[in-house]
């Protein structure tokens, strides 16, 4: 348990060391957020939608603030896979799945917390119609936060599976780029999922990608009533169980394969 906590502490320390990069990143993300808000304001001016504009703007800001969670950023592990150094790790008597799972989580959590807090403060300070709106109610906020946590568990499990798969392919960069992109589109980063055609949304919102940010944001803005919360929890929970089981299976297979080959 102590060792696992240390992973988080190390990560936080690393992130705070690169203050310049964090400040630059916040600036960049704010700028992109402003451009997107300006675009949706212009679109809404011509043709208002059922979903209020303020919800879309809030959606944009929350997406920007937690951008780091979307991006798979474990370049270290990807390098290890590319160079084959991962073979050493696979031979160690460690629960590697657990280790890399927590590593991915620490990276996403610590990396985005440092950026999300200043960004959300800035987004609150923006003038009316530009900034982030308050949550529907306190229970909505709590439901959103809880959903975010479960969504994170879900995405980390997903990432571990993609890692396990890329471990088997030789040139993983193209694969990685494509999976990253799938994540960006299907999590609502490029275009809020709420603006996708309604028929598509029925399917997309069920996918694991949507669990990370889309579902929590909809709970936060109140687009989904609190009565939907149990349904969201069920979907997230089911994905977590399924994805973790699948990931464990893949990692075991990889480990076996490499031990059989004798490293």
């Amino acid at each position: 348990m102590k060792a696992y906590l240390a992973i988080f502490r190390m990560r936080l320390k690393m992130e705070t060391q690169y203050r310049g990069a964090v400040i630059g990143g916040v600036f960049c993300q704010m700028f992109f957020g402003l451009i997107l808000v300006a675009l949706y304001r212009a679109l809404y001016a011509g043709r208002p939608q059922a979903l209020p504009l303020s919800s879309v703007i809030t959606y944009v800001w929350l997406q920007q603030a937690f951008f780091r969670m979307v991006l798979s950023s474990d370049g270290d592990l990807a390098d290890k896979i590319r160079t084959g150094a991962i073979a050493y790790d696979l031979c160690r008597p460690l629960n590697l799945y657990g280790y890399y799972y927590l590593r991915a989580m620490a990276m996403k959590l610590m990396g985005s917390l440092l950026r999300a807090i200043p960004m959300l403060v800035l987004a609150i300070l923006l003038p009316d119609g530009w900034g982030i709106a308050a949550p529907q109610s306190l229970p909505h906020l709590l439901a959103g936060l809880f959903g975010l946590l479960l969504g994170l568990l879900c995405v980390c499990a997903l990432e571990n599976i993609t890692m396990a798969i890329t471990m088997r392919t030789l040139d993983s960069r193209g694969m990685q780029a494509m999976l990253n992109l799938l994540m960006m589109i299907l999590s609502g980063n490029i275009l809020p999922l709420t603006l996708f055609p309604d028929s598509w949304q029925k399917v997309i919102t069920l996918l694991p990608y949507a669990q990370l940010l889309d579902a929590p944001i909809r709970l936060y803005t109140g687009e989904w009533a609190l009565s939907q919360f149990p349904r969201v929890l069920c979907i997230q929970g089911a994905w977590i169980v399924f994805l973790v089981a699948l990931g464990l299976y893949f990692w075991r297979q990889n480990q076996k394969r490499i031990v059989l080959q004798g490293g």
Binding site: L43, A45, Q49
Partner: peptide, 24 residues
């Protein structure tokens, strides 16, 4: 991968057009 990437961006524009029809 690049085609998928830029295709994704283009799809976003198409979906926006689908929902909003016009922009100014």
């Amino acid at each position: 991968a690049q085609i998928v990437m830029e295709g994704g961006e283009m799809m976003a524009v198409l979906l926006i057009i689908d929902r909003f029809d016009t922009l100014h």
